[in-house]
Simulated assay, not measured.
Amino acid sequence: MTTPYQRKDHDSVSDDVVWHNSTVTHEDRVIQKGQKPVILWFTGLSGSGKSTVANAVESKLMQMAKHSYLLDGDNVRHGLNKDLGFSDADRIENIRRIGEVAKLFVDAGNIVLTAFISPFISDRQQVRELVTEGEFIEVFVDTPLDVCEARDPKGLYKKARAGEIKHFTGIDSEYQAPVNPEIHLKTADLNIEACADFVVAELEKKGYLQLGEQH
């Protein structure tokens, strides 16, 4: 069944909408910023540490004078996606919209960090396919459910267990873990600083923090 937020098969962009080519190109923006733009897609359960690690990574990138922006799941739901709930259909639309926003940041030459549970493999793959090869890095913030539930920084697991929150990932809604993420963080074994250092080191190793050939 099609929801209000899912595109119907026959939906398409109107013939009256014509793509406008900008004089300033993607390559111009990349050269100006002196870095390789990429989406760092942090995914994991609620309480896994996605936002905290992503925030620490962005702070380190700022200290290195890199151009970045962090899109946080909760923050985006205060504005762009405030009309969406937490059903599977709304979660899919939530990630679709963020994927399109992240694509714009990449076009602008930025390193964009996104911290979203994004529970479905197909949705994360859809975002990957929005950009060119090498412009999407999946970062699996791998924290066991019992550790996340013990942390419960927002008290959401307690509410979910009490039946006060429906469709809560890990409780009554599925989380599909990444099969082969580019970066795998086990936050139960590493502290925030170590996780952030590892991500930045991977970006450096893969050639994203300066122009030139990627490894």
Rank of each mutant, 00 (worst) to 15 (best):
F136L: 06
W41L: 05
K60S: 01
K158Q: 12
F198K: 15
S122W: 00
T43I: 12
F116K: 04
A150F: 11
I98W: 03
Y208H: 15
Y5W: 15
K205N: 12
A162R: 01
A196M: 08
S122A: 13
G44M: 06
S48F: 03
Q126I: 00
A201N: 11
F42P: 01
P144Q: 07
I117Y: 11
L70I: 09
Q210C: 13
I95S: 09
N191H: 06
T52M: 02
E174D: 14
D146C: 12
T23C: 03
E149P: 00
V127G: 05
V141P: 00
R97C: 07
Q32A: 13
I39S: 05
L84P: 05
S46L: 07
Y157D: 00
L80P: 02
V147C: 04
R7P: 04
L71W: 06
G134C: 10
Q63D: 15
K50Y: 09
Q6N: 09
V147P: 02
T169S: 05
E93M: 07
I192F: 06
R7W: 04
S22T: 13
H26I: 11
P178H: 11
A65C: 04
K8P: 01
V18P: 01
G134R: 05
K166I: 12
L70H: 12
V18Q: 09
V106R: 02
V18Y: 04
E164F: 08
D15S: 14
E164V: 14
K8A: 08
G170A: 13
I121H: 05
I31V: 11
A201D: 15
N21I: 11
Q125I: 00
T132N: 11
R96F: 11
H10P: 02
K50M: 06
G49Q: 09
T114G: 03
T169V: 14
N75P: 01
N75C: 00
I39K: 13
T143S: 08
A196I: 06
D146F: 11
D172L: 15
A89C: 07
H78L: 14
Y208K: 14
I183K: 11
V106C: 05
R96L: 12
I111K: 04
L156M: 12
A177L: 12
G212R: 10
Q176S: 08
L203W: 12
H167M: 05
H167K: 04
H26R: 07
G47Y: 02
K60L: 12
S87M: 07
Y157N: 02
G212F: 04
E135M: 10
A150Y: 10
S87D: 09
R91D: 03
S46I: 07
K82E: 13
A150D: 11
V200H: 13
P37Q: 05
L211V: 10
E202V: 11
L156E: 07
W19K: 11
A115M: 00
T52Y: 01
V106F: 01
K166Y: 04
D9Y: 12
K159R: 09
V112Q: 06
E204T: 10
A115P: 01
I192K: 14
V76F: 12
C148D: 03
R29M: 10
V53H: 04
L130K: 13
